[in-house]
């Protein structure tokens, strides 16, 4: 893990008088699997919004593969290789599953995709995610699990170097959680670094090589899953005094 893909320094974000994030440092190595956890309202979502560009941070810098992206709009970050999946699936409802993947292939991955191969590559992604037989179905009619898979498929079609997965498993059954986990492992094997935001501890601990804990907008702990489980500060943050 020598090469750093994403480096976030001293990140702060305020909403009016409320400080959502205060001086947070975060880095992700190439191909690394990072878990980002914390109680509700701890700033996880703000954090990934700042990384993806949906929000601009007030202080601090974000660098991606050595480039300063702090003030870059989201679509340019997507072009560079930051992909994100949404907690509440946001499919392009008027399109089929296959067409949904065509958008990131034609935009985010435009420079890295030959025009002739777009449909083939979309099918390859669907194959990997396990949505191949849904390719020509309308995306609005998918089941919850398939919608989550489509989120990940669309993120993958952007050919990212870093995937930010925002609670891809919330509300799924235990076997469905395992399915999504398998997909994330498979993506990671292809060299994509992953930041996983998740409430399901079993999944985070199994997936992550390193875990970072936020509480009330500050980083309170960072370490291997084993270290985090036994960290007294983390326990306090989750269970209260």
């Amino acid at each position: 893990m020598s090469e750093v893909v994403l480096q976030v320094n001293n990140l702060s974000k305020r909403f009016g008088g409320f400080t959502a994030l205060r001086n947070v440092e975060l880095h992700v190595g190439a191909g690394e699997r990072l878990g980002l956890i914390g109680p509700n309202g701890s700033g996880k979502t703000t954090m990934i919004n700042c990384i993806s560009g949906a929000l601009f941070n007030d202080e601090g810098t974000i660098t991606f593969e050595g480039r300063d992206i702090t003030r870059m709009p989201p679509h340019q970050r997507a072009n560079l290789g930051i992909a994100r999946s949404f907690q509440i699936p946001k499919p392009f409802r008027s399109m089929t599953v296959l067409e949904n993947l065509r958008v990131p292939l034609e935009y985010a991955a435009h420079a890295r995709t030959s025009r002739r191969r777009i449909m083939d590559e979309a099918m390859e992604v669907l194959e990997l995610i396990g949505l191949k037989d849904r390719a020509n179905q309308n995306s609005a009619g998918l089941t919850q699990v398939d919608m989550r898979k489509l989120e990940l498929a669309r993120a993958l079609a952007a050919k990212p170097r870093l995937l930010v997965s925002d609670e891809a498993m919330a509300g799924l059954s235990s076997s469905e959680v395992d399915e999504i986990l398998e997909i994330l492992f498979a993506l990671n094997k292809r060299g994509v670094a992953v930041i996983m935001i998740e409430h399901i501890m079993r999944a985070v601990m199994r997936f992550s090589e390193r875990v970072l804990v936020l509480d009330a907008g500050e980083k309170i702990a960072e370490g291997t899953p084993k270290e985090i489980v036994h960290n007294p500060d983390v326990e306090r943050a989750y269970l209260g005094e």
Binding site: A54, P73, H75, R84, P91, F92, M95, R102, V103, Y107
Partner: peptide
């Protein structure tokens, strides 16, 4: 065209379109 699919993505979900690399503005 490619632009047309970008526009359709905006119509369907602007935030998701931007994250898929579509220069929405």
């Amino acid at each position: 065209s490619r632009i047309g699919r970008g526009l359709a993505a905006i119509r369907d979900d602007e935030v998701a379109a931007e994250c898929a690399g579509v220069p929405t503005l």
